[in-house]
């Protein structure tokens, strides 16, 4: 494939974001992957020419970082966290199950069967800063939280069949190439999809609200800076559905009550 003039222009635009052009190299390589499906020799040459460095220098950078791939990546990059915490919580079993189910090894891509709409590259990944949702998978670097072997095989079956799939804590999943374009710094307009946070992220906050605990107020006395925070009812209900815990349930009940008091005030009243 030959890089288009548009791609060359975009590569130059990335370099121009920085006080020194070479700082653009990491996002430039993300753009190359988005266009080419991997880091190609042509992409390396293009980056080198724009930055005025050698192809060997670019290559040296591309081989250092694990997100850059020399082999073509499938439509969906499916990562299974097998760092210790996720491994122990089930990640190892999920990864084994998926290798068998997809008949691929680590860092390999599925053959397209006649009925498939999409291919999958399977890889085990390191801790993805989502340990409170273990075992964690990532599809094109979107969170798939609290997975099981069953939900994992269902997920890859859905992806291969072309069904619409949503991140458990994010937007509708796009392709790996689309994801790489966002990493290059070209937004895709999906920032507003998905929730503010998943249930685990809100765990402590929910308990604090339930018990009326707050940080001290500015003048040093506790309990007066309770957030006058408009909650997001839909999201709360989703959190309840996902975690069926009483704290979140209670919070939703409070949200539905017609009063303007905060949850913390109410707890005090109780």
């Amino acid at each position: 494939m030959t890089l288009t003039q548009e791609t060359h222009d975009e590569l130059r635009a990335i370099a121009a974001r920085y006080p020194e052009a070479r700082s653009g190299l990491l996002p430039m390589l993300h753009l190359v992957q988005s266009v080419e499906g991997r880091v190609t020799p042509e992409g390396i040459e293009a980056c080198a020419a724009i930055l005025g460095i050698t192809a060997a220098e670019v290559s040296g950078v591309a081989t250092f970082y694990t997100m850059y791939k020399r082999k073509p990546v499938g439509d969906y990059h499916v990562g299974v966290c097998t760092n210790t915490l996720c491994a122990v919580m089930g990640g190892d079993l999920i990864f084994e199950r998926l290798k068998g189910h997809l008949d691929v090894g680590n860092d390999e891509t599925t053959e397209r069967r006649p009925e498939d709409k999409a291919s999958i590259t399977l890889e085990h990944i390191e801790c993805n800063a989502a340990c409170d949702y273990a075992p964690v998978m990532m599809v094109n670097w979107e969170f798939m939280d609290n997975m099981t072997p069953q939900s994992a095989t269902q997920l890859v079956d859905d992806l291969r069949s072309g069904a619409e799939v949503h991140s458990t804590r994010g937007p509708r999943l796009g392709t790996w190439r689309e994801a790489e374009r966002v990493l290059a710094g070209f937004p895709d307009g999906r920032a507003d999809e998905g929730p503010s946070a998943g249930p685990a992220s809100l765990a402590g906050r929910e308990i604090a609200r339930e018990r009326g605990w707050t940080a001290p107020s500015s003048n040093g006395t506790a309990g007066e800076t309770a957030g006058e925070v408009p909650e997001e009812p839909a999201q709360r209900e989703q959190a309840v559905a996902e975690s069926d815990d009483t704290v979140a349930e209670q919070a939703v009940v409070e949200d539905k009550s017609p009063s303007g008091e905060t949850a913390a005030d109410k707890d005090e009243a109780q």
Partner: peptide
């Protein structure tokens, strides 16, 4: 974390 659950936070 106080605002993490507010609408379109």
């Amino acid at each position: 974390t106080d605002n993490w659950g507010s609408e379109r936070s």
